[in-house]
Design a binder for these strands. Structure first.
Lengths: 363, 363
DNA sequence: GTGAAAGCGCTAACAT
DNA sequence: ATGTTAGCGCTTTCAC
């Protein structure tokens, strides 16, 4: 058994240099791919590198360069599939370009977001991919601006006058959801959202409402917006449905909406949970569509309809934009919108087609 | 509008020094909390720091020190709640100690795992938290050993002769699952696992089987192990159930297991998916328990019973062990097991209590 | 073509 | 109590 995990000294560029019989400067050049080195010497360097198992210390290297080859990524959380995939994609893309990604979670706190950003600034990161907690006007983006940091804003943003932005085309997707639901005959729909995420909620709500009212002008759209957290939403939703039920005593089917469109993932969970509590089943008792897809949504019974965000595209274009800026790209900030896919699954049906007390939708 | 995102030069320790009328060394001492500095000078330093908005460059600082205040974390993936939470916890704990966490996903590939580790070694990280793809005997752990790196192994590990390990007590949890299922009357249970994750699958399987056969010696336990990926599991499960159905033609209820215990999250999803395909509902047609909990499991209908891993405890003890080693802690490697909670939810019932063709379990 | 020298921003000995 | 010196490991002029 090893006595201890001894950190043996790694060979430095000077070790390579002396072994190859050249100077450290030459080694540096060879490794940087400079072609003006005599082939013979280059070979000796490669051999020495091989023999010593030498690898450049990226930090020491960055120390001397102007910009450090580090990208910072700040996400509101890591627990959801969306941001998990996002980080995975960003990491891969950064790596492809020889950069290291340092990821941090703001845990849905703007204060923490700014702190992390300050730390990344200390690290002199070359650029930052920021998925802000609220929107592009938060203190974090402000900090970036004030300190001349290079960055891209993603997800909960629309556009900005200082940074490029990349996000899902929430409005278009929501319009499609509206078309689908109205096509199925729904004329009374509840939309559930989180007020804090101002930028995207507005876009999604407006996109939905615009399309819906155009197709069915007289229809009713109710909105329940949680202020700042998901906790209260649960109660708000309960109250909302209680009020609905109150209005139609003795009729058996009244002012209750026939479909719910949740503008964010946690809202979908809360809605499902509330349906459970009331013993309502999708799609017979009520239909449900959620913004944001998740793997489990296709294996539950019924499968949950969802808007799928193009994670790869968002990550890809964010990194493209970021590196363009890092490499000195000029020009006004671009606001990109990536199209979503809407997956209509079993949780959506036509109103009145199922019995209010009947069993679930079966094969 | 800002012309461009100009990277204004940040003030260095020398700027602070000259502004405070002292040397850089003194500034360094003051900031490091050395008490032998004249209070008056210390105050001047603090003032200068304040005025210039000076912050230490952590990289330059680490450059000079022996060890770098960076912790590397390597997870098999970031898309699941478990690893997402794990990264969040680890990041917070590292930050608490003034370290930065660099996280990377091995994407379930041992080759990538080793590559990442090599890169972290280049970075001279102070320590690594590695959640290996397979087990503690993979090439990554080998690499760590060979290079004298400091590290802790978590999750898919049992114990190691070179590194501390921290993982969920899979065996105990599985034994509890066995007790619960047998208590409900199940005597024919299918266990679904992923062969690749040798360490934990063994522990979970043995824990389950041991407890089950002790309580109900004559019971039948079938096992379906996917080799290396989740894809094949789908087909294997289908074949397995096809075989079951074949045997009991004309009887209506035969050799089909009455419960399924999935040893990992994806297996639970695949099982649910297969039940869907066959039109089986939990718990009337079959019961289901999965290792690994997820938020959605409590809002679906029925809610899915699951083993909850103690993420915070695992992360906490992993970091504790890691920092103990970083600070020179000696002694043989410790293998820690953290107890899980088993949440029996609606997906588990008693065999035969529901009609095979009836509706779902309702309030 | 190649190497010597000068640092990137910081800290730890060693003087004073 | 403080400053001077000497680097950490690397890259980059700039002479040769």
């Amino acid at each position: 058994m090893a006595r201890r995990q001894d950190q043996q000294r790694r060979s430095s560029i000077h070790d390579v240099a002396s072994r190859a019989g050249v100077s450290a400067a030459t080694v540096s050049k060879v490794l940087a791919g400079v072609t003006t080195v005599k082939p013979e010497n280059a070979q000796r360097v490669f051999d020495a590198v091989e023999q010593l198992g030498y690898r450049v210390d990226p930090l020491a290297s960055d120390m001397r360069r102007a910009k450090r080859r580090i990208i910072g990524a700040i996400m509101p959380e890591f627990e959801s599939e969306f941001f998990g995939q996002m980080i995975t994609e960003l990491e891969g893309l950064a790596e492809q370009r020889g950069y290291t990604l340092v990821a941090a979670s703001s845990r849905e706190s703007e204060a923490r977001e700014k702190e992390i950003l300050a730390r990344m600034h200390d690290w002199r990161v070359a650029g930052v991919v920021l998925a802000p907690v609220r929107n592009e006007h938060g203190p974090a983006a402000e900090f970036m601006k004030a300190n001349g940091m290079t960055g891209v804003l993603i997800d909960r943003v629309l556009s900005d006058d200082a940074f490029d932005t990349v996000s899902a085309d929430s409005a278009a997707a929501s319009a499609e959801v509206a078309r689908e639901l109205i096509g199925k005959g729904h004329r009374h729909i509840l939309v559930v959202g989180l007020g804090e995420q101002a930028a995207t909620v507005r876009a999604r709500l407006d996109g939905f409402r615009g399309a819906a009212l155009k197709l069915a002008p007289g229809m009713r759209i109710d909105v329940v917006l949680a202020e700042s957290d998901v906790g209260p939403l649960r109660a708000q939703l309960r109250d909302y449905f209680d009020a609905c039920e109150g209005k139609d005593q003795g009729e058996g089917k009244g002012e209750r909406p026939t479909a719910v469109y949740s503008l964010f993932l946690k809202g979908t969970l809360v809605a499902l949970s509330e349906f459970r509590r009331r013993g309502w089943h999708c799609p017979n008792d009520i239909s449900l569509v959620g913004f944001d897809d998740a793997e489990w949504m296709q294996v539950t019974w019924p499968a949950i309809a969802a808007v799928v965000q193009p994670v790869r595209e968002i990550a890809g274009h964010a990194m493209e934009a970021l590196f363009a800026r890092i490499e000195g790209g000029e020009g006004p900030p671009q606001a990109r919108l990536e199209p979503c896919r809407v997956l209509m699954r079993e949780s959506v049906g036509s109103p009145g087609s199922g019995s209010h007390s009947g069993g679930g939708n079966r094969q």
